[in-house]
């Protein structure tokens, strides 16, 4: 029997009826068409499907969509402000922190979760926070550099009293 799911995704309120067994990534990709969030292992072991749930990074293949009921989700599609990219996106671009791009949205969402909590992480802290995120292209170092670069950009933005 279907159950009601009311939640906010990227600032937009949704009211859906879904099968209780549906996992969050299915709702995001198949119901809402937000295909920037990827599925890669479907077993919670690669983190490609990471989104923010009330600001915390979660693997959207490993939680039921109903666990997001009444909560706020941020996906990669909600990261930019219109056509203005988020500093994390800019930093990923300038540091070549992606190649094929398939793990990138998960990496960036986790980076946002990390930087919101710890605005100035050391390399080891980034490695620890990002350790679950598999990337077969970059070898991780350039992702770590991008996250450090993003931290600086966010710092500058805050000092200048810029947008969120």
């Amino acid at each position: 029997m279907k159950k009601e799911l009311k939640f906010v995704v990227n600032g937009q309120t949704y009211d859906l009826w879904i099968e209780p067994k549906t996992v969050l990534v299915q709702v995001l990709r198949d119901e809402l068409g937000l295909k920037g969030t990827k599925r890669s292992c479907d077993s919670g072991s690669c983190c490609a499907c990471t989104v923010l749930l009330n600001g915390k990074a979660v693997k959207s293949c490993s939680i039921l969509a109903l666990q997001a009921n009444g909560k706020e989700i941020l996906t990669v599609e909600g990261l930019a402000n219109g056509t203005q990219l988020h500093p994390i996106q800019e930093a990923f671009l300038d540091n070549w922190a992606f190649q094929c791009g398939f793990c990138t949205s998960g990496q960036m969402m986790a980076a946002k979760g990390l930087l919101d909590e710890n605005p100035d992480p050391a390399r080891e802290e980034i490695q620890l926070a990002m350790d679950g995120h598999l990337c077969r292209c970059t070898g991780y170092n350039m992702i770590n550099e991008a996250i450090q670069d993003a931290a600086k950009r966010l710092q500058t933005q805050e000092e200048q009293g810029g947008a969120k």
């Binding site: 920037g36 990827k38 599609e77 990261l79 990219l85 996106q89 990923f92 992606f98 791009g101 990138t104």
Partner: peptide, 15 residues
Amino acid sequence: RNVDGVAKVTGEAVY
């Protein structure tokens, strides 16, 4: 910069 980069960091790149 990667010519596909903006599409890839915004989730718009279609696989």
